[in-house]
Design a protein around this nucleic acid. Structure first.
Lengths: 140, 140
DNA sequence: ATAGTGCTTTACGTTTACGTCAACGTCAAG
DNA sequence: CTTGACGTTGACGTAAACGTAAAGCACTAT
């Protein structure tokens, strides 16, 4: 799936690269979206001359971005989160900062987890009521 | 918590009512936000003359709205969801439609559930790596 | 040489979800 | 009866997240 139909652009070894069109439709977004993420500093593809060249690192980031979006995080917040993964952790103060950020993120995510679980549960109860109604329609 | 400091407006029986200011700061939003939800048809408070009067039904809807927002749903979609709960279910076709909608909603929510769980898991692994790094700083 | 295909930047447009005045009504308290 | 405190309706402003041209390179294919 990594090789395009027309212009072959993948190196096909370890160190594959992709064009903007390839990553865009592989991830189901437009090239405009991909470039928008670059404008905001969420991805920084290599440049070969004027052209953008995407590596696996960029694809990893893109999938993190899209999952973040599915979870309703704003792009700016997503940036701080994925930057966290690449942040320098050499000194103790840096590590402790990162660990603190992790805790904040986790608290946020666990709230969302509860919200989703509650919503699914309520949906289940509602379905039960509906099925009851449906049953009463058959044998009154 | 239902009685204001100045102008007493709660009936204090079964059938409590609230002003816009009361619901707004109880739910931690502005009155502008509450009115915006009304403009979009997500809540329809009673009118006593020109004033809005909020009932428990409105509060239930508001909490559903806010949870939907925390989950990243757009307001229009939230409206169709919570309207579903109040939809007529008298006829079989209506019930079957509702049950179909429930399935769609559930599929969506279960995707989000997986996303949140994955994100939490990754955060856990990342924390583990950080703690390892921290340990190596003590005893090299 | 020219046409086509894909990529690039620049820049204005759009939708969502409110924020922020402005200007006015209303009711109880001083 | 005027002053607040709270409520109301416009109406314009704004930030986020892209959409949508417009116009120009770069390389290939004919």
């Amino acid at each position: 799936m990594t090789s395009g139909t027309a212009t072959e652009r993948t190196t096909s070894r370890a160190g594959e690269t992709w064009t903007i069109a390839q990553v865009a439709d592989e991830f189901g977004v437009t090239h405009r979206t991909v470039r928008h993420y670059e404008d905001l500093g969420l991805i920084t593809p290599e440049r070969r001359g004027t052209q953008r060249v995407y590596h696996r690192r960029d694809r990893t980031r893109l999938s993190l971005i899209l999952r973040g979006k599915r979870l309703g995080f704003p792009l700016e917040e997503i940036r701080t989160i994925i930057d966290l993964f690449d942040a320098p952790r050499g000194r103790r103060t840096q590590l402790e900062y990162v660990l603190g950020q992790i805790d904040e993120r986790r608290a946020d995510l666990e709230q969302r987890l509860r919200d989703v679980q509650d919503a699914i549960a309520e949906l289940g109860e509602f379905e039960h009521r509906c099925r009851d109604d449906l049953g009463r329609l058959d044998e009154p």
